[in-house]
Structures are given as C-alpha cells and as structure tokens.
Simulated assay, not measured.
Amino acid sequence: MMNEFLGKQNFNISNQTVSESCPSNIALIKYWGKYDNQIPANPSISYTLNHCKTNTSMEFLADEKFSVQTFLGGKEELKFAEKIEKYFKNIEGYLPWILKGKYIIKTENTFPHSSGIASSASGFGAIAKCLMDLDAQFSGKSDEDFKLKKASFLARLGSGSACRSLYNGLVVWGKTAEVAESSDLFAVQYPNEEIHSIFKNFNDWVLLIHEGEKSVSSTVGHGLMNTNPYAEKRFQEAHENFKTLKEILKNGDLQNFIQLVEHEALTLHAMMMMSEPAFILMKTGTLQVINKIWEFRKETNLPLFFTLDAGANVHLLFPENSDSEKIKEFIVKELLQFTQNNGVVKDMMNF
C-alpha cells in the first residue's frame, strides 16, 4: 500500500450528496501494457479535452448496508454497479469509511457512448473526485493539491488512463527521467513553461468510424502485451519518444510532432496485430481516412494529422490558427463520408 495515501481512521460520516465533472483525454504517447495494481509498463502523455466530460452526482447514505446503484443517462446499469462495488472494496485502505453506506451514483456523458472517447477515463476521474469530496467532508481536512493528487491515484486504480484526466493541458503518467515529478502511481501536469504556444490551442475532432462495442476490450488488449514478443522494445521506444517529444514541445517543431504522434498511434495498433491471438480494431474507414489525411497534407502542407485510441475511430488533430477553416472544410467534405452515420465529435484543448 502507498503510505502517503492511506486513509485516516478518524472520520465522521453523514448523509451527503456531491457532484463533480471530469473530462476525457487523448494520449499522444500511448500506454499499452501494465503490471499488477495498474502500474504502467511505460510513461504516457495526453491532452485533456475541453468539452467531452462525464458529469457525476454521488449520494451517500450513511450507516445503510454497503451497496452501489448506478444510473447512466437516467438508465440503471447493474453491471457497472457491480464494477464500482468491486472498485470501492479494492480502495478501502485508502478511504476507510467507503464501505459504511449506500451509494446512488448518477452519471451522464456529454459525448456519445462507444465514440472512441475514453468514458472510463472521465467516468472514474469524476467518481474519484466525488470520493475525495466526501473524504474532505468526513475527515474535516481539505488540502486541495493533495486532494487532487490522491484523486488521480484513486482514479488510476479504477482505470489507468483516468489518472491523467484530473489535470488540464498536457498530462504525464508513468515514471520518466524527462519529467521530474512523474510517477507510476498518479499523473502530473507537464510543465506549462516547457510547452511552445503552438501546442496550447489544438482541435481534436473525432470521426466516429464505428459506434458499436469493440471486438476486444482494452483490458484484454493490455493483458496480451504480457506475451507479445515486441513488448519490451515497445516500452523502451516509448521512453525514447518521450525524450524526443520533450525537445519538440519546447521548440515548437510541429512537423516532428505530427510524425511522432502518428507513429505512436500506428505502433499501438501494430502491437495489437502482433499479439497472440492477433486482433485488429481498425476498420476499412479508419485506413481510408488515414490515407486521405496523408494525401491532403502532401498536397496542401497544412498540419492536419491523426491519433488513434484502442478502437476504430480517428482523432483528427490540428492547431487552431489561420489555416483551421480550410482543414475543417476538408474534414466535412472529404472525411465524414467514411463515418458510420456522419458522426463527428468536435472538441479542443486550450490552456
């Protein structure tokens, strides 16, 4: 157990209702492969989104028998309730009061389900923030910086990448020599003064190529890295890419940023294809969009590029500047045709 985050035994529980909001994030250097207790096999860095969020209210009924009821968009979700019960039992050492009441959790996402936007990241981020609000009420102690750090730590134990959603801007999770305060146990903000202004105002438009459930879950995918013959090389490469990215972020080298981010996205999917058993989450439309982006960039030299999560949908990244309108026009005219239902989620990052 991590002593810094162990819960205090002195607390006074009471009926409470708290509400929190937490955004999703999109990784630039990918986390794929982990050890026990949600420890990442390599460091990752992500952009926190502005608009794609999970809004959660948590009602705590003191002294009732421990149970969890969950509602997603007004509909009761029994499987999710089971998952949260298991999660709460797992983190009791850090919040000793957590099993001493009943929870009614109501959650809504501002983005479509199964859209390639990490709802587990925003969802567990919001739950962890709610839990820390309750902890502050019950313990009578509230150090805001520590509260956020512990929320990131707790969110990680629910969903690894969730720990990155607790902070704005560029966020690092996983120990790396390139970021002084970085840790495997929680996320930290990348130093703002080390980021060139070109990277601080970015669009992320998500093309919904496939809106159904993935054929292989991220949990299973992470597990398959344990036997992937290329895993160790991949983990080493992620550390090397971090060193490269640090220089890129400092000097504003957009061309090399594009190259590195696209390489990371394709490496993630290459790892899936080289797993045993192999699996492919990209769809025909994913590949068509990628080729169209490459053609467009070659013809126009405009900075439209992509990243991918563990799914078929394509995150279209481009800076918000004088060229943005031409890029947006191209997306609407040429790329929407490859989506399932003309689906696109428009988000951005500015900090």
Rank of each mutant, 00 (worst) to 15 (best):
M1I: 11
L6S: 07
K8W: 12
F11H: 07
S19C: 12
S19D: 03
P23V: 06
S24W: 06
L28G: 09
N37F: 06
N37P: 06
Q38T: 03
I39T: 09
S46P: 01
N50G: 06
C52E: 11
T56Y: 05
F60R: 07
L61G: 04
K65L: 12
E76Q: 13
A81H: 08
E82N: 15
Y94A: 08
L95S: 08
K100Q: 15
K102H: 14
T107C: 08
F111T: 05
S115E: 08
S119Y: 06
S122R: 08
F124P: 00
I127S: 00
K129S: 02
L131E: 04
M132Q: 14
M132T: 09
L134F: 06
Q137H: 13
S139Q: 04
K141I: 15
K141L: 12
E144T: 15
E144A: 14
D145W: 08
K147M: 11
L148T: 12
A151W: 01
L154K: 09
L154Y: 03
G158A: 08
N168S: 14
V171K: 09
T176E: 03
Y190S: 07
N192W: 10
I195E: 03
I195D: 06
H196G: 02
N201K: 13
F202L: 14
V206F: 11
V206C: 04
V206M: 09
T219F: 12
V220W: 02
L224V: 00
T227N: 13
K233R: 09
R234L: 05
F235N: 05
E247G: 09
E247T: 12
I248F: 07
Q255N: 15
Q259F: 03
V261H: 00
E264P: 10
A265N: 12
L266I: 13
M274E: 14
E276G: 02
T284C: 05
G285P: 07
G285M: 11
K292W: 02
I293P: 12
N301Q: 15
L308Y: 00
L308D: 00
L308F: 00
D309I: 02
A312E: 01
N313E: 01
V314K: 03
H315K: 00
H315P: 10
H315Y: 04
L316I: 09
S322K: 14
D323E: 06
D323P: 01
E325S: 10
E329R: 15
L335M: 05
T339N: 00
Q340N: 06
N341T: 03
N342I: 00
V345L: 05
D347Y: 07
F351P: 10
F351K: 12
